[in-house]
Design a protein around this nucleic acid. Structure first.
Length: 484
RNA sequence: GGUCCCAUCGUCUAGUGGUUAGGACACCGGCCUCUCACGUCGGUAACGCGGGUUCGACUCCCGCUGGGAUCACCA
């Protein structure tokens, strides 16, 4: 049997990092087994589902490079297009007395829960409508439809004897006593199926062999399995991944700051880095830290998945991003950095070769594309601001003459503006004025970049080019000698 | 509170009865050096507790403690 896994996000918000990790693992498992990865959109909740959210999910997945074999835009993979199927399933359960109408109001249910809590009893539904409808009436009862006056819900008649065992691929067997499973609502009074019911029909209809999801779904699993049984179907295999927590040890959520895929994209992270970080959170392959997507496909398995929750560590993600900053082809970084330059309101250089040369001098000093652009300010803008403290320390009158000599030497280089030629020019000035490189490099650095921190001075000069270098040098001489 | 899950450095993890308990991030030092970085070398740091099983437990079992998830007409 070929493996088929699915990822079923709900389009009710941004694509969350903890959530997408579950999708990634389902994807990797499918690819590892040369199976299919299905993307399904759980949008039964019309009120909370939005088109923007759907677009964000799709775009996030595309950006990450997670490719689904089946799914949107095919409407078939939207729960909202499958209501007939859900109705059919619910009716079948009703006719077979495996489900029943419940006439309790939301308020009533709420009061029931509160009372149970007060009296330290189980907060679940007590089954008071379980036998309210006669067997014969179950043959004719219709599905709820508030507008048509059929204001009730449909509940699943959960078995009260025995136990349900979830033989989880990651956690091992978990035994749930069926008495713990209350009769859950499978159809709301507005005629919309609920998640636990719809997902069962979907997983079956789409031939899902392995349900891979976060372990927050583990308590749902025995209920879903019972629905499979009631429908006369065999449940798929389950693999419940441990959760991703925030630094406070609680389930990762919006209040932990940047948690969406888009957030990291906009912060200047590479998709490779995010994927790489996520895959190592809860999975390992010996001591290896860096994985390409194809390596993930090759090595991924549930046996190497950890069982315990992991805390999201932004610092390590940053380090991995830095790794890719240093390793990715410079052409790729040049392509990716452009939107970030534009976002700054700066002009994107037309010369890609020059941009790449610039990036080569910066890439081991910037951990994200945002940082890269900030650092590149003096390359990208003709107007530089000289840090007053740096100027006071390095642009003093006594260095002006040497600076002038550097400008003249560099200017005389003409078209041979290679780093080697630049270095030779520096050495001539150093010898003439009897200076050490450090004594000359820092003033030049301040003159060219406005600050005391930059890539190697020869690199900076080579990238800046003759005209801009000489102009900045001359401006600095003016500043150093107190001129206007 | 009920149910379920989990437990190795601060964090992510390797480890599947006998190891000086390994790696990575972070942190701290040395080296390299025109600044900052990169790189490189080294360092600090962990098996939650208590019982078993065993010649021998980080590894297996039980209990405790601790953490987490979940108990909707959300998904």
């Amino acid at each position: 049997m070929t493996v088929r896994t699915r990822y079923a996000p709900s389009p009710t918000g941004a694509l969350h990092i903890g959530n997408v990790r579950s999708g990634l693992f389902a994807y990797l498992f499918a690819r590892h087994n040369h199976g299919a990865f299905i993307l399904r959109i759980d949008d039964t909740d019309e009120l909370r589902s939005t088109a923007e959210s759907l677009e964000e999910i799709l775009e996030s997945l595309r950006w990450l490079g997670v490719e689904w074999d089946e799914g949107p835009p095919d409407r078939k993979y939207f729960q909202s297009s499958r209501f007939d199927r859900y109705r059919e399933g619910a009716l079948k359960l009703l006719r077979e007395a495996k489900a029943y109408p419940c006439y309790c109001s939301a308020e009533e249910l709420d009061a029931m829960r509160k009372a149970a809590e007060r009296e330290h009893r189980k907060p679940g539904y007590d089954g008071r409508c379980r036998d309210r409808t006669a067997l014969a009436d179950l043959q004719t009862v219709e599905l709820p439809d508030k507008k048509a006056g059929r204001n009730y819900t449909i509940r699943f008649r959960s078995p009260r004897e025995g136990a349900t065992v979830v033989d989880d691929l990651i956690k091992g067997p978990a035994v749930f006593e069926n008495t713990e499973l209350d009769d859950l609502i499978i159809f709301r009074s507005d005629g919309v199926p609920t998640y636990n019911f719809a997902t069962v029909l979907d997983d079956f209809d789409f031939g899902i062999t392995h349900v891979v999801r976060g372990d927050d779904h583990l308590p749902n699993t025995p209920r879903q399995m019972q629905i499979f049984y009631a429908l006369g179907l065999t449940p798929p295999a389950y693999a419940h991944l441990p959760m991703v927590m925030g630094a406070d040890g609680q389930k990762l959520s919006k209040r932990h700051g940047a948690t969406s895929v888009f957030a990291y994209r906009d912060l200047g992270y590479f998709p490779e880095a995010l994927l790489n970080y996520l895959v190592r959170l809860g999975w390992s392959h010996g001591d290896q830290e860096i994985f390409s997507l194809s390596e993930m496909f090759e090595y991924f398995d549930f046996a190497s998945c950890g069982k315990s929750a992991g805390i999201f560590n932004a610092e390590k993600l940053l380090w991995i991003n830095f790794h890719y900053m240093k390793e990715l082809p410079v052409e790729r970084i040049a392509r990716d950095v452009k939107p970030f330059i534009a976002k700054k309101g700066w002009t994107i250089p037309g010369d890609d070769a020059w941009l790449e040369q610039m990036i080569a001098t910066l890439r081991e000093r910037a951990k994200t594309l945002v940082e890269l652009v900030e650092f590149a300010s003096f390359y990208l803008n003709d107007e530089i601001t000289i840090d007053p403290k740096a100027a006071a320390k390095f642009l003093k009158p006594e260095i002006a003459e040497a600076l002038g000599a550097v400008a003249a030497e560099l200017d005389a280089l003409g078209d041979d503006f290679s780093e080697a030629a630049i270095q030779a020019a520096f050495e001539r000035v150093l010898a003439r004025f009897n200076l050490k490189l450090g004594q000359l490099a820092q003033p030049v650095r301040v003159a060219l970049t406005g600050g005391t921190v930059s890539p190697g001075i020869y690199e900076v000069i080579a990238v800046l080019g003759r005209a801009r270098t000489v102009a900045r040098l001359r401006a600095a001489i003016t500043l150093a000698t107190g001129g206007t």
